[in-house]
Design a protein around this nucleic acid. Structure first.
Ligand SMILES: [Mn+2]
Ligand SMILES: [Mn+2]
Ligand SMILES: [Zn+2]
Ligand SMILES: [Zn+2]
Lengths: 144, 144
DNA sequence: ATTGAAATTGATAAGCTGTCTCAAAATGAT
DNA sequence: ATCATTTTGAGACAGCTTATCAATTTCAAT
């Protein structure tokens, strides 16, 4: 576990402590791998980790990534067919631009859009809990 | 087929003609049922139509609703677990507010948001083809 | 109206992603 | 060190949608 992931490790431990959950070798391992990327699917991580840990089960990966979501370190996104687990440990809320050709994902944040969303909700008597904004198109390289 | 659905029927016929597809009793039937609602799942329509047509297959419903998507009459949305087929025949693009408590869905359109989306895309070198904006929360009734 | 190539249908098998089950192993409070 | 509790791994299972394929229907050309 690299030194730079200490803060996230602490956050996980705090969540575990609050919910009578245990810290296992697998959870440490998966956290370390997870924090190295921005978005990853359970299967992709399964294959990635199989090289060093051939007996790590896919179910454990799913369970652990979902645990990270509960702990506020990850967020599940549904860009394509498989769930992408988004690393939100060191950044706040954000939305995505997705290239339908090469799969490139760009994260962005736009306060004006967020404010207008609240406005729309208020006009309709809603109180927003979460939202999902995804822009699909072609990135600069795939456009040509 | 009610008289008021003639325009959509024509749109479907045009799509069929352009793609060497045939007009069948099932397609007419499913179109008629589809146009009576704003959003519906394939299974919901299956059960709805089973009352009058017990032999209409679920696969045919799926195939036909996907055909409507190709023809521009419908749009597939993924609010929950099942695909919702959105009737866009008589309205343009729109986004949704969804109550997580009672499932109520409100459609809205906000040009300012759309414009800001284009801005974000341009800043990142993207050209938007489609987008998805969903606001999840509590409606006025479920808030209390 | 009849023909016949091509498309469609219905029943069901299969596919895909993700969760559940459960015996064995690991954890950690005492 | 003990031992109740949690976790793991392997595979079964579940939910939703698409693929398969023989039988039927459509429709353009007689
Ligand atoms: Mn992200
Ligand atoms: Mn709609
Ligand atoms: Zn691209
Ligand atoms: Zn509600």
């Amino acid at each position: 576990m690299p030194n730079k992931h200490v803060k996230e490790m602490e956050a996980l431990k705090e969540h575990l402590g609050k919910h009578q959950l245990k810290l296992t070798r697998q959870r440490e391992l998966i956290l370390s791998a997870f924090l190295r990327q921005e978005h990853i699917t359970a299967e992709a991580m399964y294959h990635q980790l199989a090289k060093s840990d051939p007996h790590l089960g896919l179910a454990t990966i799913y369970r652990t990534l979902n645990l990270f979501c509960d702990a506020g370190l990850a967020q599940a996104r549904h860009f394509g067919t498989q769930t992408q687990y988004d690393n939100i440990s060191h950044k706040g809320h954000h939305d995505h631009l997705i290239c339908t050709d090469c799969g490139k994902i760009v994260e962005f944040e736009n306060c004006d859009i967020e404010r207008l969303q609240e406005e729309v909700a208020t006009q309709n008597g809603f109180i927003i809990k979460t939202h999902r904004l995804e822009l699909y198109g072609l990135c600069s390289r795939c456009r040509h």
